[in-house]
Structure formats: structure tokens, C-alpha cells
Amino acid sequence: MGTDERIILVTNDDGITAPGIAALVEAVRPLGKVVVVAPDSPQSGKGHAITIGIPLRLNEVDIFEGVEAWQCSGTPVDCVKLARDKILHRKPDICVSGINHGANHSINIIYSGTMSAAMEAAIEGIPSIGFSYLDYSFSADFTLCKKVAYNVTAKMLENNAPPGTLFNVNIPVVEDAHAFKGIKICRQANAKYVEAFDERLDPHGKKYYWLTGEFKNMDPGEDSDVWALENNYASLVPVQFDLTNYRMKEEMERTWKF
């Protein structure tokens, strides 16, 4: 693998056999040499989890014609770490994660394995993008998603995005191609799931629980990712992983005395 060759690392959290990752591979293949490293089973909701205390398995598989691909027994973050250290032996030029089956807008970014994989790459200084589609169906049509993924990835490469650049891209479900309004650069909405646990009894009379919830958008702004998606735009949110509240820090430095 030549050091001057553009390398695109592809990963996800739905597992290496998910239709979304096949669509992403197809979308970005024209832009460089694609290498896939993805979990061997679904890892949705794992966030930034890493595997500690048990061994990780990494096996080469023949799933995508003409594309080097590896399946990993660990989390999406494990996949990115192993890809850099044991497969590529260098940083890829870009990392793309997805295409996730389901939304990762607003607060979902905190829980998302798709975005955590991209974030791990960004922490390593690799420009990265997480892609998600608001259709949860296994048989979802990824035609529009592939166009969005190609355009955003190509734009990131063309503009030589600085190390650590991280985008969260969500794609709406539209009635037809003419209803899609394009890609809108947004901020993360103030929205979340109002959650509860449904308590039930198993056949032995022991309690068990299902997590349930309803999505609530508390954000009236027309520049948020939720608004964009509700209005047939794909949302692109530039993300950072410095969680410091700088406004509060400045206020505390003025008013708190220790």
C-alpha cells in the first residue's frame, strides 16, 4: 500500500453485513482506495465504548467486490483503533462511518456508535464523517444517501479539511428525489428522548424492563439539524469533542473563589 495513495477507511455500527455500509462503500469508491473495518455484529447504541479485558478478533472477509474488508469482534471504536494500528499502519486520509439505519441527529450523537467511530478517527487527527439515514428499515433505499455521502466526502477531501474535522450528516426520508432540497449546514438541535421503562413479567414471574420513549424537540430554531430534516434537507453539523463549557468557565473564573 503506497504511502502516497489516498486511503478511505469505512466503518459502521450496524455490522459489516448491513446494507448501509455496502451503500457507503459504493458511494466513496471513486474517491480513493477503500478499506473496510467494521463490527462482526450490530453495535448500535454503544457510544464510545472500547473493549477491555477480553481479546479482540480481526478476520479478513470477502464481502465487497474488489475491496479489502475486515470484521472485528469489538465495538466501532475498536474497529478504528485496530484499522490504524494493525491494518493500515498509518492514518487514513479520511474516515467515513455508516450509513446508519436510523437518525443520529440532536442528542443522539452522544449514544451513537456510528458517530463514535468517526469521532475516534477525528481524535486521531483524521478528518471524519458519520452518515445516518432516517429510515430504520433493513430494506431501505439508499440511493439518495449515496449521492449525499459522495458529495460531502468529496467536498471534505477537496477542501483539505484540517486534522480532527468531524461532520455529523443525517439524511431525510423523502417521497421522491424532487422533494429533496439539498444539504444544509446546521447546529445540533436541543432535542432528546423523554424516556421510561416498561415493566413486565417473564414466564417465571420475574420483572424485566423495556426502554421506551418519545422524541421531543424543544428547539424552535430554523438552523438546527432537526428542523432541516423535517423540511427535506440533509443536515450537516460540524462537531467538536472538546466538551468544555467556555462561557461557564469564564463566569466561574470571575465569581468563584477558592
Rank of each mutant, 00 (worst) to 15 (best):
R247V: 04
T3K: 10
D78Y: 08
V35W: 01
W210D: 07
T244Q: 15
R200G: 00
P172Y: 13
E222T: 06
D135H: 01
V148L: 10
E230N: 13
I50L: 15
H101I: 00
D219V: 00
T75R: 13
K216N: 07
V77M: 10
H101K: 06
V37T: 02
A103P: 02
A83M: 07
K146E: 15
P172D: 13
S106A: 10
A121V: 01
G113L: 00
T153K: 04
N59G: 07
I50W: 12
Y209P: 02
L144M: 04
H105R: 07
T114N: 01
K181F: 03
G221A: 15
T244E: 15
I63L: 07
V226G: 11
V28W: 13
A38P: 07
V169Y: 13
C79Y: 06
A122K: 05
N232I: 09
W70K: 07
F197I: 00
V174F: 09
I126S: 00
L24I: 12
V36N: 03
A140R: 04
A191D: 09
E199P: 00
V148H: 08
G53T: 06
V34D: 07
T51Y: 12
S128A: 03
A179L: 03
S41C: 08
P162C: 13
D40T: 03
G66V: 10
S97A: 09
L58W: 04
M218C: 04
